[in-house]
Amino acid sequence: MGTTKQQEQVVGEAAGVPFVALPPEGDAPAPLVVTWHMMSPPCTEVAMAAAVPMRGLRAWRVHFGLPMHGRRLPPGGYEEFFRLASEDNVLNVVEPVTEQVAKEFPAAVADLRSRLSIADGPIGVVGGSAGGAAALEVLARGEVPIAAAALVNPVVQLTPVVAANERRYDVVYHWSERSRAVAERYDYVLRADELEADVLLVIGEQDDVAIREPAAALVKALGERGEQVIIPGMAHELAEAPGIEAAPQTEHARVVDAELTKWFARRLNV
């Protein structure tokens, strides 16, 4: 599919992946930073582009849509998505979304490079919450050279997040041998040696312990490659509900946006 220009945004698909791209100032080739949104607000590429546009960064900021969200909702829309999640969130949502992101990423980046004025060299990746797990999986696989990653309230370990959802929704998740294997595979504290780039973790002070404690453990495991910033008063979300359409930045999103901009300006030398 082609692209259309809308209010300085480039909206289209790259190798089948929906995106909203914010171009840098000027016509010269510039580095690329890719983001994946949350499953909570902001939960589409459009909303993520509004929440953390990183407008002060001289780079292409391309916000990818997650599978099963936004333009790629399953047949039946949100009703079907929540049915699948309630049936088995790990096997019906987390695993297929994360795996599809990792598989489609190299071709999507190659497509972007063929169409946008992106400079040669490693790129940056950003992920929020479940999009953070997707960014970590992409980084761990190493199929595309990545200079630096930034994760906002990411799912670093799946098991604590499942427990948090049990507390929040008063449900019991019935683990199986397969779902436990998925949780082990998506434990990025255990896989820290596979993350061969500098990683910034931006964590809300008021987020659940299921996010905060694994993030701290990952920073420790990464050693000199890891850095953490705690945002006072911030909980999990980066946008007001429902987080589907573009909306004004929240106070906390502005702080996160500034941290991301500063991080990639240093790591991409722009």
Rank of each mutant, 00 (worst) to 15 (best):
Met48Gln: 15
Ala181Tyr: 05
Ile123Cys: 06
Pro31Glu: 08
Val199Asn: 01
Phe105Thr: 04
Pro122Val: 02
Asn89Pro: 01
Asp88Arg: 10
Glu177Thr: 15
Val93Glu: 07
Val126Leu: 10
Arg71Gln: 15
Pro75Phe: 09
Thr98Arg: 09
Pro41Leu: 10
Ile230Gly: 00
Ala265Asp: 15
Val270Trp: 01
Gly223Lys: 02
His63Lys: 05
Ala164Glu: 09
Gly12Asn: 02
Ala164Val: 01
Ala215Cys: 13
Val125Gln: 03
Gly16Ile: 10
Val152Cys: 14
Asn165Gln: 15
Gly2Glu: 14
Ala21Arg: 07
Ala149Val: 12
Ile230Ala: 09
Met54Ala: 12
Leu66Gly: 05
Ala215Trp: 00
Glu137Ile: 02
Pro53His: 12
Tyr188His: 10
Val199Trp: 01
Ala14Pro: 09
Arg141Asn: 07
Gly127Thr: 07
Thr4Glu: 10
Thr98Tyr: 01
Met38Val: 02
Ala15Pro: 04
Val209Pro: 00
Arg267Pro: 04
Ala210Thr: 06
Glu227Lys: 10
Ala246Asn: 04
Val93Leu: 15
Val162Asp: 03
His63Gly: 06
Ala210Ser: 14
Gly2Ser: 13
Gly233Tyr: 10
Gly131His: 13
Leu201Lys: 02
Ala163Trp: 04
Phe264Lys: 03
Asp111His: 10
Ala47Trp: 04
Leu268Lys: 08
Trp36Arg: 08
Tyr188Ile: 07
Gly204Glu: 08
Arg212Lys: 10
Ser117Arg: 15
Gly124Phe: 11
Ala265Trp: 01
Val34Lys: 04
Gly12Pro: 06
Leu200Ser: 07
Arg115Glu: 11
Pro24Val: 10
Leu200Met: 14
